[in-house]
């Protein structure tokens, strides 16, 4: 797959000339001039060695960070001039995060962890729980709903995190080294879930340094020294 994807009618992500410099001596040019378009339903992987700027790119994609320059449109919404409050709403509604270290709340049940992602979007409580159950069944954890995350295996925890990312119906699923803390068997299971999601029309962007993981994607982009290579 190549840049033909740009031609898709409604890109989820549209980055034009995006830069991110960290000031202060010495200035770090983490991202320089990135143009990236992710079409709807695409499954993209961004590979790169550590220090290549892929974390920074993930933060920019996830609206966790502001670009120094350039234009970033998410679902057609220009995010450059949005205030923090608005960006938080957009983030909650449009982006589902899956982290390497899962980031589950240990003191809450699996079900509550999944339902949490709809709290700040304003979904009523009953609907939250109902949808969280459906999402957990979807990732095969119906039997673990009332468990504490600490009692689950790594693969199970990551599946909870995926359920949490999906349940708010995001436009973009953003995964940061999703298999980094998992053994091969569990990693394979997670990648299978991603394949299924892709088949169902979800837009995915997976950031990884692992070529095995990267190869599963429909399209691969390599990032080196803050620039993308096709």
């Amino acid at each position: 797959m190549t840049a033909t994807a740009v031609a898709l009618p409604a890109p989820v992500v549209e980055m034009i000339g995006v830069r991110r410099f960290f000031p202060g001596p010495p200035e770090v040019q983490a991202i320089r001039e990135v143009d990236l378009v992710i079409g709807q339903g695409e499954y993209l992987s961004i590979v790169g060695p550590s220090g290549s700027g892929k974390s920074t790119l993930l933060h920019l994609l996830g609206l966790l960070d502001n670009p120094t320059g350039g234009v970033y449109r998410l679902d057609g919404v220009d995010t450059s001039n949005l205030r923090e409050r608005r960006r938080a709403v957009l983030r909650g509604e449009r982006i589902g995060f899956v982290f390497q270290s899962f980031h589950l709340l240990d003191h809450r049940t699996v079900l509550e962890n999944v339902a949490l992602s709809m709290v700040y979007v304003g979904v009523p409580r009953k609907e939250r729980l109902a949808r969280a159950r459906v999402a957990l069944e979807r990732v095969g954890l119906a039997h673990r709903m009332e468990f504490a995350p600490t009692t689950l295996s790594g693969g199970e925890r990551q599946r909870v995190a995926i359920a949490r990312a999906l349940v708010a119906e995001p436009s973009l699923l953003l995964a940061d080294e999703p298999t980094g803390n998992l053994d091969t068997v569990n990693a394979e299971a997670i990648l299978e879930v991603f394949d299924e999601l892709h088949a169902e029309g979800m837009t995915l962007a997976v950031i990884t340094h692992d070529d095995q993981v990267s190869r599963r994607a429909q399209r691969q982009v390599r990032i080196v020294d803050g620039t993308l290579q096709w």
Binding site: G62, E84, R91, Y120
Partner: peptide, 11 residues
């Protein structure tokens, strides 16, 4: 995590 899930600073 809460911020990533859409919580604003004030939340």
């Amino acid at each position: 995590l809460r911020r990533a899930l859409g919580a604003a600073r004030r939340h």
